[in-house]
Design a protein around this nucleic acid. Sequence first.
DNA 1: GTCTATATTTAGATAGAC
DNA 2: GTCTATCTAAATATAGAC
Lengths: 222, 222
Amino acid sequence: MKTQDRIIHAALALFNQHGEPNITTNHIAADLGISPGNLYYHFRNKEAIIHSIFDQYAQDLALAFDPSQPQEDTQALLQHYLDATFSLMWRYRFFYANLPDILRRDEALQHKYLDAQQQLQTNLMTILQHYSHAGWLNLSESGLAAVGETLKQVASSWIFYQSAQAPQTHIHAGVIYKGVLQMLALLHPLTSSQGQTAIASLMDHYQQQLVRQDIRALDTLN
Amino acid sequence: MKTQDRIIHAALALFNQHGEPNITTNHIAADLGISPGNLYYHFRNKEAIIHSIFDQYAQDLALAFDPSQPQEDTQALLQHYLDATFSLMWRYRFFYANLPDILRRDEALQHKYLDAQQQLQTNLMTILQHYSHAGWLNLSESGLAAVGETLKQVASSWIFYQSAQAPQTHIHAGVIYKGVLQMLALLHPLTSSQGQTAIASLMDHYQQQLVRQDIRALDTLN
DNA sequence: GTCTATATTTAGATAGAC
DNA sequence: GTCTATCTAAATATAGAC
């Protein structure tokens, strides 16, 4: 791997584990066994590293919604959406745990972030409209928009919320399934009887993922 | 005012305006026109200042739900709850914009925060149960708990969410009314016809507050 | 591309005089 | 209680040799 990519990789891992404000350029260099001078040869400063990590995130996000993918049914579409957004948020969680301060320092990044959010929201609304047209949701057009807005907030602040609720050590990948379940629980009382079956089956699916994840987490402790 | 209180006051204002990570003990001392040495006479370090500010927040929160207050009707109770929690979150917004990192640094504070959250959640669930018993909500017992959990997340991540959405300069007190409206919009489709009237009247109320606030914000610009 | 060495700056904190 | 003076430690960043 190129040194530039190794820096991005190491920085992401350290940021996720210790929180971005607690990791300096020296920490990153030391972790890789390279000199600080070398690191500064590849990146102008720490902000540039964060910016590059975000670019990679945005690229991963675009790939996850590759328009060349085959048409799927509504149900699979929602599951794909939830899987992709939450697993990516988890992989880049340092960012979502610290959004206000990171974005304040880099105006260009703020705009890129809002663009990405807008794309995610558009995709979500498309899926909600599928559900609505299939008669699975009992909501007016404006009700749909309101739910979409709430879902967007729940998703994009989930990592933040969990980080504040639990001491850092207790956070593991299982929290992403909890986040998905939280969103589905929000939709559940708004569905018609057919829709309820669809949402309930998704909730079952993620409940199982959560249990498996918890078992894996226990294994890690041993 | 005692110097100790003046430090807390100035620190809160600076933290809210510039973000806690961007304000040093030197900034606080300079803002007050006192020496750094003097500041350190009153507080062991910056963390102690933040901790004191939180203690004041917790005290304000307890006061806002003074048990000696007269019994109110369900509707007034919810309005009181929303007014108090959101206006206090606004007054101490630096904290809510940066929760994960602030709490990670101070384990004792993490516990105090969780206690406060627990108290807020208990109060919220009591109110939801009032609504439910009055036949205003079409929800099972478990549905009620799920909605309560979502409302808790929406409320406690509202400041964070807004700070990430908007460039810092565009954030003003009006966002707290938007947050209240967001919570009410979440409840709205879950209500019975009587409940709908009650929630709709609250939404009207906060919509008006929001408009007034926006007008005041415009005034400030002129 | 990478290292060593080092400069610059700032945050956090303390000692001791008043 | 408050100030002046100052120290330590750390973070950011660069210069120049290899």
